[in-house]
Deep mutational scan, measured.
Amino acid sequence: RGITCLDHENEKVNMYCVSDDQLICALCKLVGRHRDHQVASLNDR
């Protein structure tokens, strides 16, 4: 089922925000508060 995003409840987390040490979803990176932050794919970890 996967872990859902805290900010976007219908989205699954699939990225890690290095700047905030937090799991995020694609919407967080595209339009959310993490858009200018350094992120890594969970597949890279």
Rank of each mutant, 00 (worst) to 15 (best):
D21T: 07
H34E: 03
D44M: 06
E9K: 13
L27R: 15
Y16C: 06
R35W: 01
K12W: 05
D36F: 02
Q22M: 13
N43I: 04
V39R: 04
S19T: 12
N43Q: 10
L27D: 10
M15C: 15
H34V: 01
I3A: 07
L23R: 12
C25F: 02
I24C: 02
Q38D: 14
E9T: 15
L23C: 13
C5D: 03
C17Q: 03
H34Q: 04
K29P: 10
G32P: 03
E11F: 05
L42Y: 08
C25W: 00
G2K: 12
L42E: 14
R1V: 06
H8M: 01
N10F: 01
E11D: 10
C17E: 07
N10Y: 05
R1G: 10
L27V: 12
S41A: 09
L30V: 11
C28T: 01
V18L: 11
R33Y: 09
C5A: 02
T4D: 07
T4L: 03
M15F: 09
R1E: 12
Q22I: 04
Q22L: 06
I24H: 06
E9M: 12
D20H: 02
V39Q: 09
V18R: 13
I24R: 03
A26T: 09
V18I: 07
N10D: 09
N10I: 06
C5G: 02
D7W: 04
V13L: 09
G32W: 00
D44F: 03
Q22E: 08
N14Y: 07
G32S: 03
D44T: 08
H8E: 02
L30Y: 09
L6S: 14
C28G: 01
A26H: 06
C25Y: 00
G32I: 02
I24L: 02
I3G: 12
S19G: 11
L6M: 13
R45I: 10
N14T: 13
V39L: 09
A26G: 14
D21Q: 07
R45T: 10
K29V: 07
V13R: 09
M15T: 08
K12I: 05
H34W: 00
L42M: 10
M15A: 13
E11V: 02
C28P: 02
A40S: 13
G2I: 01
V13Q: 10
C28M: 00
N14W: 02
G2R: 10
N10L: 08
Q22P: 03
V18A: 13
N10C: 06
T4R: 05
R35E: 14
D20Q: 01
S19F: 07
R35T: 06
Q38F: 01
L42G: 09
D7H: 11
S41N: 14
I24E: 07
A40T: 09
C17T: 04
D20S: 02
N10Q: 04
C5V: 01
C28S: 01
L30C: 12
H34Y: 01
T4Y: 14
R1M: 10
D7K: 04
M15S: 12
N43D: 10
